[in-house]
Design a binder for these strands. Structure first.
Lengths: 118, 118
DNA sequence: GGTAGATATCGATGGTTGTCGATATCCGAC
DNA sequence: GTCGGATATCGACAACCATCGATATCTACC
């Protein structure tokens, strides 16, 4: 590979490994993948991801997402940023509004890592 | 269902939902599932799970696991407890030794939730 | 260019978590 | 029964994180 694992985003790193049930993860692999799971391991972010994924056209405007939560606008923005930074959400600005879209291949790679592909 | 979501272990709860890309998770569902992902979202626990899963016969003795890490024995024990409590690892004591085994159906349910089954 | 609305950033704070050393518990062997 | 080794629990501490209010930035529109 051309880049070190540590230079990759978590979603890129997760595609590098065979299923964790087949061969033990190296320490470096685990360190690269854990941030992706950490991003998912929050109830608010789980729901945000789910809301975006299940939204029509596979994308959702931030203005639609906040209403589902009893949280401040900065907090929602923070969670979306976390999901974006690990590579789970794509971000597009159209006019005043910002739209997020799920990077489905990222979820697919994670599923493969967890052994789903078998 | 007979039990409330909140009475279930995370691995039981994760089997309750359609893939999060198909329908938005409820707040209650997300709260039930997040602990399972939180348990996975640590590099040491990822490697522990992987080591156990990839070990011969699908189970591993604690005495075999500690050597792979530069961590104290209580820390390894703590991480194994976390994985056991959320339902990802089964625990069996044979004599002085304790063996852990991956609950593969738990991983399978998680994969289904993340959309792997499609 | 000034204003209003949408989203992001900043700084602070309380709660959570990974780690450790010390200690407890459990079990087999002698 | 007691000794030694394997594992778990406890209490403490530092690092991390979710959340907030205040504020900044960006864009369309008048």
């Amino acid at each position: 590979m051309s880049k070190s694992l540590l230079e990759l985003t978590p979603v890129e790193a997760v595609a590098c490994c065979s299923p964790l049930t087949k061969a033990p993860l190296s320490a470096e692999q685990a360190e690269s993948i854990a941030p992706l799971l950490k991003a998912l391991a929050d109830p608010v972010r789980l729901r945000l991801l789910s809301l975006v994924a299940a939204h029509e056209a596979g994308e959702a405007c931030v203005c639609d997402l906040g209403d589902a939560f009893d949280l401040s606008q900065p907090t929602i923005s923070h969670h979306l940023k976390v999901l974006h930074e690990v590579g789970l959400l794509d971000r597009t600005k159209r006019g005043v509004w910002v739209y997020y879209r799920v990077r489905t291949e990222a979820l697919g790679d994670l599923v493969a890592l967890l052994g789903g592909a078998a």
